[in-house]
Design a protein around this nucleic acid. Sequence first.
DNA 1: CTATATATTTAGATATAATTAAAATAAATC
DNA 2: GATTTATTTTAATTATATCTAAATATATAG
Lengths: 218, 218
Amino acid sequence: MSPTREDYLKIIYELGGRVTRVPNKEIAMKLNISPPTVTEMMHTLVSIGWIEYVPYRGSMLTEVGVEEAKKLIHKHRLWEVFLVEHLGYSLEDVHDEAEVLEHATSDTLANKLYHFLGKPDYCPHGGAISFNKIEEQDNEAIPLPEVGKGVRAQILRHVNEEKLLVYFKNHNLSLLDIIIVKEFDKSLDLLHIYNETNGEDVYISEKTSHYIFVKQVD
Amino acid sequence: MSPTREDYLKIIYELGGRVTRVPNKEIAMKLNISPPTVTEMMHTLVSIGWIEYVPYRGSMLTEVGVEEAKKLIHKHRLWEVFLVEHLGYSLEDVHDEAEVLEHATSDTLANKLYHFLGKPDYCPHGGAISFNKIEEQDNEAIPLPEVGKGVRAQILRHVNEEKLLVYFKNHNLSLLDIIIVKEFDKSLDLLHIYNETNGEDVYISEKTSHYIFVKQVD
DNA sequence: CTATATATTTAGATATAATTAAAATAAATC
DNA sequence: GATTTATTTTAATTATATCTAAATATATAG
């Protein structure tokens, strides 16, 4: 399977395709390509059997699609562990390398690597590695904007992309921080968040905050 | 650069493109593709600057081409070491995995991997790993058929391909064995070889023996 | 509940990569 | 010099991934 197709698959998974129908527009935006290209590719993914697609509505992953996506995520995160723990890579650099390696990794290799690394539970960005844990984490994690006002929540993970890493760092938001959503100014697209862990108030783009995943805590 | 192009580059290197002009036919045969495809690709490789090509004569690597080829070989062998020593792969299985991984390996990654592995000298098939040693080994190694009759020679390495591995194993020819070429029956395409190391007489295809590299010993 | 805005799809192309078969041509050999 | 062998040219084919512009469907706002 081509890396390109696998990239579409992963993005649909990350945008919630396991439980929601993902509109083409979101995919087009995330990949910076034109909408027709997405439509075209959706037909391809249907023919592979990875997604179930309803025109004008969007796509949802099939069981096979979910499995494939999880495999890719598993491989990606395994490489991140290897790169950081054994090769001394910094957190910022691992993503791009893993992005390429994951597509060149056979299932056998992934399995041997998993054991070599000592069956790690999490990647350096907090993402679960075992298939069960990936499922579990994705079940309890919800996108930040879906947390109600005033509810305490813990940052579990975020979509793994260089720009986002920098953005979150600049706003002093880190993995496992406890935060409370205070208010949302729709016209400014700003989400007011109180970071209980470091005592700071931060304002982040609501749009961007879709890529932070949290779980409610009490 | 695409994996396909890189594969052509490596094959030209393996067929001696560093010092000889490699005819298209040999490339076509090794890759099991039609001659026009090779001609076409040679033009592409010229435009990349990897080879210098004379129509009807064949291609020779440029300085850049040699460097690129050595990088790929370096990466390939590094992965083989990693797969065998750390992941417990068997000798027979590493080649195919390494073949895919090498194309997904950045120079940075190769460098870090090299140090992680403790700057190994040789891959599990006897191929040199450091750039200097690759050069050196390729200078002293000659294809078996070029050794004169009755001359003692040592098997240094062979072109790394599943079928060949099995073929050589079946003939009890192993890395570092000392052999003497006795005779060559052209009509049968058989090379009569005495394996001094295990005391056996073997007959192998002359054509195939081009892929065993040896150095003269006295 | 229509008009407008937005999202999606179709249609028609383009680019590039990798490949082929058949015919033409060059080089090597006998 | 004639024949065999190797190589190239020509003319296509297949597959992947992408686009723009126009048409169409869906959602939203009076």
